[in-house]
Design a protein around this nucleic acid. Structure first.
Lengths: 142, 142
DNA sequence: AATTACCTGCAACTAAGTTGCATATTTCTT
DNA sequence: AAGAAATATGCAACTTAGTTGCAGGTAATT
């Protein structure tokens, strides 16, 4: 099980043309363990002081560039990241699902089952991407 | 016209139980002049060094508390604000419109004409609010 | 016009994010 | 499997963003 995960992570990194390093493996493991989106400070907390802040920033940026993770919009200064589905890649991003932020526990979830609706904008706008963030109360907190 | 604006601003502040001060009036004027959403650094730039950073933070927070402005979600660390429609107030917020971010000029717009669609989440989630941010190319940039 | 309530600016601080560079680790090549 | 090349990391130093307490100032109330 754990072995399996390691192998999966190894392939994921290699497929993205990234070296397999301790930091990257640890960070991917955290993403896989977590049921919600994570932000920079979560990694600092969970990894302890064994990894440099800068390395975490650069790791997240690399994952973003390669389409391994995606960002989720927030109304504050935090930046939240979540794993992309396996079908995403560097040049072919398609995370067209809805995000949910629970007001009770603060967790942000990807609702992979829920597609973003198509939206009709006024004439003259070209639509490239639609982000939907729903806030409310999640299953666990109700 | 300008006089009119001043009066309008005066009423807006008084109705929200806020004192009418130079900073607040200037900031509201900037919101009214601008066709897009603004962030903290825009105010620092546009107001010059005549106003303290802290005052700007506190002013935006006060406007937010009173329902004069609302925040727009972003995927970066910036916090974008835009004026609420006149029908909003402290306890009755209803900015159920779509936001648009132009990838060319960087402007973020409120599309008041475009309502957010209703979204059907999986069972067990209570929905309180739905935010939609569309990115693409705006009228002007096409 | 005086009193009260509220707002602003300053200083000092915490947190967040970036860049350059030297060193270390991983990957490639043979 | 060893050495060369490519890539990643950690540190230092810096920039930008956001917060808090408090003294003094301005706006509102009477």
């Amino acid at each position: 099980m754990v072995k399996n995960n390691r192998e999966q992570i190894h392939h994921l990194l290699r497929n993205s043309h990234l070296s397999v390093t301790e930091t990257r493996v640890k960070i991917l493991e955290l993403f896989m363990k977590s049921n919600g989106a994570l932000e920079h400070s979560d990694f600092e907390k969970k990894l302890g002081q064994s990894f440099d802040r800068v390395t975490i920033y650069r790791t997240l940026q690399a994952f973003l560039d390669k389409g391994i993770i995606h960002k989720i919009p927030t109304t504050d200064t935090s930046v939240r990241y979540a794993l992309c589905k396996s079908e995403c890649s560097e040049h072919d991003h398609h995370d067209h699902h809805v995000h949910f932020k629970c007001e009770e526990c603060g967790t942000t979830l990807c609702l992979e089952e829920t597609d973003v609706p198509s939206i009709q904008l006024p004439k003259g706008y070209a639509v490239h991407n639609v982000e939907v963030v729903v806030s409310g109360v999640c299953k666990q907190c109700k």
